[in-house]
Amino acid sequence: MDSQNGTQATDKPTAPKKSLRGFAAMDPQRQREIASLGGRAAHQSGHAHEFTSEEARAAGKKRHARAAGGDVRAS
């Protein structure tokens, strides 16, 4: 610790701070609004996929079987 200013001295130079641009620079509420519009547009155009209960159940079974070490192929 540096006794003069109370900070810790390090050998590494600090990395330059990256400035946020585009989507990352927007406030979170505005990001949500834009994302919401994109989701609505995808559904309206038919490009979004909504899982049925059966599809979700089958996907969950496959995922859990894979995590447990079993080899489950699509049936």
Rank of each mutant, 00 (worst) to 15 (best):
K17P: 05
G6T: 11
S3A: 15
R57I: 03
K18Y: 14
H47M: 02
R63D: 07
S19V: 07
Q29S: 05
D11Y: 11
A74Q: 08
E54S: 05
Q4T: 03
A48D: 04
K12I: 08
A48E: 03
A56K: 10
Q4H: 11
D2L: 09
M1L: 15
G22L: 01
A59L: 08
M1K: 12
M1N: 12
R73L: 11
K61D: 08
H43A: 00
F51V: 07
G69K: 03
A41P: 03
T10Y: 00
G60R: 03
R63C: 03
A58C: 04
S3Y: 01
R40T: 01
R40I: 00
G6P: 03
T52N: 02
E33V: 06
I34M: 11
A74C: 06
A65D: 14
H43Q: 00
A9I: 15
S3H: 08
A58N: 11
E33P: 00
R32Q: 11
A59H: 07
K17S: 14
D11H: 13
Q29H: 07
E54H: 06
L37F: 00
D27H: 12
S75D: 07
D27W: 06
F51E: 04
P13E: 10
K61M: 02
R40W: 06
D27K: 11
N5Y: 14
G6Q: 07
D2E: 15
R30C: 02
Q44D: 07
G70N: 15
A41Q: 11
F23V: 00
K18H: 14
M26R: 14
S45Q: 09
N5V: 01
K61C: 00
Q31Y: 00
A35C: 12
K62F: 13
A67P: 01
P13G: 06
K17R: 15
P28S: 04
A58Y: 00
H47R: 11
G39T: 12
A74F: 05
E33R: 02
E50Y: 01
G6V: 10
P28I: 02
G69L: 10
A41H: 04
S3N: 13
D2F: 12
R73N: 06
